[in-house]
Design a protein around this nucleic acid. Structure first.
Lengths: 338, 338
DNA sequence: ATGATGCCGGAATGCGCTTTCCAGGGTAGA
DNA sequence: TCTACCCTGGAAAGCGCATTCCGGCATCAT
């Protein structure tokens, strides 16, 4: 059906080896005149190589896998965009798996990528320690077979990648909020077993404690918009918000999407940010820029993180190197105190 | 390096053919006892098939390509999510290309997917007619080689896919806005040559005209957040907003992201929506749900569109069928009139 | 009891390409 | 002028798997 390399070779009157060398970058460069003939024939016939066959023959597929929890989440889609850009021009193609936050799906995705002999796998997003065992095992198998693993946001096994300084960045944010004069804090901490969530919570609260401030509560819930919405609804129902307290409450959500959910609940209740409750998130996802009030957060260079990670998978030397990315607190209207 | 089928076969004491039949779904089912032995051996050795080799032998790769303009755009990432879900469980893997809105990159992406012998290509997003020639040509080549093409949001060549009734939906929105009593309209229409943008503009304005209302202006600009922001800034500078007019102005942006940009500019200028200017978008991207004021738009079931398209690529019969999706006007606070 | 009919496992071929390995011719050095 | 070497193109051997064909065996009907 499709035109094969052999067809091109025949048309050009050369051997298949020569055609291969001309068309698909080999160390040996055939005679220019011959090369030109081959190229002309390929052009005329509309030849394009079969990547599967190439992968088989070369034992390398020119593929890189990206595993995210949810591609529709701006956090991950920003990273995906960076990854795509980081790969652009390298001839390496991106395979995407979105796992809907199921640990099993994640392991399955790694298996699939192994099947496709992807040269590298990038894993974005945090996961619980419990899930790690199975994941770690399959990733080790992958590495044993020569695959590179790059983690984004979470260290794991003996892989390399980009580590996000959740701890320190959350602490920095806490510091800034203290400077603004906030003293009453509540934390929406996401799922208990999520490492990322735990680190952000720990960094934030320990900084508070170091300043002699005890957070009034740490609530756990889903690490998502709806999680934030739910927790906030509960909080309001409990009467903790807008009530007569010793100064306004300041809520730290360990992710921006949670903060957005919380904000929605606040609005629905007819309360205002920051007058009735101050609000801070984490990540600085792009959609935050267009909120009103603008929301305080910790900026993570998401796209850059994706780009860096992709670049690391391209260069062999960096296989098990870690790059640490710091978040920058960005103070906006949602935590203003007048 | 890796464990091959032959290794498993040897370990199980059977031929490679038998091992293949057991492990990789063939029409012939070997004896249960033998099958069990093979499976045990595969398990023990940690065998997983080489998808490249399978693809080569089967002449079908189990891959589907998705081409979007920008994966970080919620419009496309929602579609991507749906596509991923639609493919889940079918054994078909998704390859992603994000073209940054460059026509050339789009053609290149199709070429790459052709190389990987993807069974189908999904193309999301609108493009100008000028770009179509090259794209159409390469897609036809693809189809000639047995590839399925599914377009999302824009008909093209003799492919199938999901068509969005931009025209009718925009008209429906115009009707609703008229019902609310709006009479002074401005349209931010995106790039002039974008078919989608043009259709939405046309549908909207023709409905207005049919009701005897002439839009005050149609401004063209980038089909993006920044495009909306820029146009709005210009509009404000020109004094058209908040000035003494015959009733408040109503702005229709042909996409939500443009509306978000416009909203940002309105806020920066210290003006209010809907009091100083009413605002409507198109698409109902997820991030719209958390805006304040909530924004009127035309709801498109984005994820469902992605899912449907993916499903179409899985079933052979649907290769050149078109499904038309209607948008539903959703009236929210941003166009309220008191 | 015997021929026909499945059924099941194995050998062999091919998917399209890369990459040794070879042979031949040209070049340079002696 | 002759030998040693390098360069170039071609033949052939895989890469790992699916699948067609084939032979052997058991089952069934006659």
């Amino acid at each position: 059906m499709a035109v094969r390399l052999a067809d091109v070779a025949k048309a050009a009157g050369v051997s298949q080896s020569t055609a291969s060398r001309v068309l698909n970058g080999s160390s040996r460069r055939p005679n220019p005149a011959v090369a030109e003939r081959v190229r002309a024939a390929a052009d005329e016939l509309g030849y394009f190589p079969n990547a599967q066959a190439q992968a088989l023959a070369r034992s390398s597929a020119g593929l890189t896998g990206l595993i995210v929890h949810d591609i529709a989440d701006p956090y991950f889609s920003s990273i995906a965009r960076g990854a795509q850009r980081g790969l652009a021009g390298s001839g390496v193609q991106l395979m995407l798996a979105s796992t809907e936050r199921e640990a099993e799906a994640e392991v399955e995705a790694v298996r699939t990528f192994m099947s496709y002999r992807t040269d590298a796998i990038m894993l974005a997003g945090s996961r619980g320690l419990a899930d790690d065992a199975a994941l770690q095992k399959v990733l080790e198998t992958y590495q044993d077979n020569g695959g590179k693993v790059a983690m984004i946001g979470q260290p794991l096994s003996n892989a390399g990648g980009v580590r996000i300084d959740n701890d320190g960045s959350a602490a920095a944010l806490a510091g800034e909020l203290l400077k603004l004069g906030h003293r009453r804090f509540v934390v929406f901490a996401g799922e208990e077993q999520l490492t990322t969530a735990a680190q952000r919570t720990a960094g934030f609260t320990s900084k508070l404690r170091a300043a002699g401030v005890k957070p009034e509560a740490v609530h756990h819930g889903a690490f998502s918009r709806d999680g934030g919405y739910f927790l906030m609804s509960e909080l309001i129902r409990s009467g903790a918000v807008g009530g007569p307290g010793a100064g306004p409450l300041c809520l730290f959500c360990v992710s921006d999407v949670m903060a957005l959910g919380a904000l929605a609940a606040v609005r629905e209740a007819g309360l205002r940010v920051p007058e009735d409750i101050a609000l801070a998130g984490f990540d600085d996802i792009p959609t935050l820029a267009d909120q009103s009030p603008t929301i305080t957060t910790v900026r993570l260079p998401l796209e850059e993180i994706g780009r860096m990670t992709a670049a690391m998978t391209l260069h062999n030397g960096d296989a098990d190197r870690w790059t640490v990315v710091e978040g920058t607190p960005v103070l906006r209207e949602s935590t203003r105190r007048d």
